[in-house]
Design a protein around this nucleic acid. Structure first.
Lengths: 172, 172
DNA sequence: ATCGAGACTTGCGGATTTCGCAGCAATAGC
DNA sequence: GCTATTGCTGCGAAATCCGCAAGTCTCGAT
């Protein structure tokens, strides 16, 4: 009775190699289940995962390797910025004149910028900044970001308290 | 000559147990280096990490375990939302009348909400939403979030293109 | 000055895990 | 119908993990 798990397994796995119309590899239920296991513990042994999802150890190993190779997931350590010495964080909304994408690229090149996304709405770009202290944050926003070519205006939202932060994509 | 690495190592490790004034455990350079290793590959063997940071396998094992126990870091799989079937994402800026924190808690309880932070600035809360499609996103924002007690107004920024997303806190 | 605690090292087996490879079955393609 | 491919299983061999003991060193407190 290592049962439960995903059952069936007849022709499901072929989905994992089938490309959906936009080039992104589609995932079947088993791979999803594997990802969920690794979201709980990125170091969980393959055999344990296999038991949970109803696959052999070797099969899990192959699928995990493929998921990593394809870039579907990565197994990494994530930390709480505060305990690692970064005391000030902020989200910055940015408006750009001209080429938005090149501005986003310039932001992406900055090490203090953790997250860059182009958006629809009253900002062209949202960027998350992680800094050591107020001075550092001020410097990044006022000296570096505002100096970028094409940047018309910025609006900052300094983080007061992080309430939720999950890595549970693919689960639900 | 298993040299290179972090050198010195005289009394650094005591920092790891010293609490900085706000209760957050302080990390020394060696723990930082270990975290960096695991940010590159969360499954890297302890011996390999030890070689890189200049510690024995056993010592690395102890430190990693402590870092996990203390909640300083976690080793998890992270995925690209798009390839896992979530095609619409948005950041939502929210203004609240009354208790901001309880509103943030309510948001945190929603599974579609990946990220919640209380901020200073023209929004009280920023929340990142991950949805399967437009209908789902519309439903979450207009039916669920706007219906929350205390929510006065919202402004949405639909993601057009994710340009950068790192998990490299603690590195630099 | 001495003692105790904490952190690290070395060394060591045993249990566990990883890894590569040889089959085998089912599917997709020709 | 036949073949190539893909995914899975099973199985040894190698590597890793894990707990533990003994000994060193430094710091801080008695």
């Amino acid at each position: 009775m290592h049962s439960e798990a995903v059952a069936s397994r007849s022709a499901d796995q072929r989905d994992s190699s089938r490309e959906s119309r936009h080039g992104t590899p589609h995932l079947d239920a088993v791979s999803l289940a594997i990802i969920e296991q690794l979201q709980e513990d990125g170091r969980r042994p393959y055999a344990a995962i296999g038991k949970a999802v109803g696959l052999s150890e070797a099969a899990v190993r192959q699928r995990v390797q493929k998921l990593l190779d394809q870039g579907v997931m990565q197994i990494v350590a994530v930390t709480d910025p505060l305990t690692v010495g970064f005391r000030r964080q902020a989200m910055v909304g940015i408006n750009v004149e001209g080429d938005v994408e090149s501005a986003a690229d310039a932001l992406s090149a900055m090490s203090e910028v953790e997250y860059v996304v182009m958006t629809a709405g009253s900002f062209d770009i949202l960027a998350e900044i992680v800094c050591e202290d107020d001075d550092h944050l001020l410097d990044v926003i006022n000296k570096r970001i505002r100096a970028l070519p094409g940047v018309r205006s910025t609006e900052s939202f300094v983080y007061l308290k992080l309430k939720k932060q999950t890595y549970m994509w693919g689960t639900r």
